[in-house]
Amino acid sequence: MEFFAQLFINGLSIGFLYALSALGFVMIFKSSSVLNFAHGELLALGAFFFLILSVWAKLPIVLCFLVTLVGCFALGFIIERLFLRPLIGEALIEVIMLTVGLSAMFKGLMLLIFGGNLHNYPDFLPEALSIQWGAISVPSVYVSSFIIGLIFLGVFGFFFKYSSHGIYMRSVADHQPAALSLGVNVRRVFALSWAIAAVVCAMSGIVLGIINGINVHQLSTMGLKVFPVVILGGLDSIGGAILGGIIIGLLENFTGGYISTSLREVVPYIVLVLILLVKPYGLFGSEEIERV
């Protein structure tokens, strides 16, 4: 029972992280229907950004956080500007291929700079955050990831619900020509969605880095897990992404705990194929309505 509870809690926290990073993915998909295959690399970019600031530059942790967030925001903007913008209006296949290319490029670049070794952040999380509950212990990383996740979900929920820019972004997702006719700057919305996605990814990258250490390969495979998560939830649903993340997190941990550790890594993909066969648009996704 304790084993079960421990797995449950681990799965929940990991799942929450998946959900958080999936948020960035859904954002890009919703605003510009681009599947971002460079998602894992965005995670890794954020994690290494933080690593440089905290270990090499030795800045205070809070400052590191802020600089990373601002830096990744700018990075997302730059990526959109340099690589995505020239392809606006091209076929979707080409744009998706472009993100595949970007992913290989960033991964190679990071491997060249940081190597394939495991890096670690300094210990900075206060021990007071960890929870001891009988035999079940929740390490402070998980608690803090939970808190960070909640804060981010809250902030973004507020942003999309009430701020003007959030409403513009949603309007572009809903009906691009109408948004254009009202003077919404669609290109800026695309750029903004990439920037926000980069920030969200950086956040989850950092927390994943605290839990497992920072390694380019590991983070980029982590990034690909966003696909099972969002497929489960439906590609364009933020609520679905959160639930999908939690389900995948739990599933992974239970498989790892009860069946076999090696199966743990593929289980999300097996589920993914099954879901696609049974319910192609995910649990909450909206069905595409097509006309010739």
């Binding site: 392809l87 080409e94 595949v100 290319g101 290989a104 490029m105 190679g108 491997l111």
Partner: peptide, 21 residues
């Protein structure tokens, strides 16, 4: 060579898509 290859291939994909799709 592995990461270098990865980087160069990625760059090649990106450049070709942008300049000569």
């Amino acid at each position: 060579v592995a990461p270098l290859r990865e980087f160069v291939f990625g760059l090649a994909i990106v450049l070709f898509l942008i300049f000569e799709p």
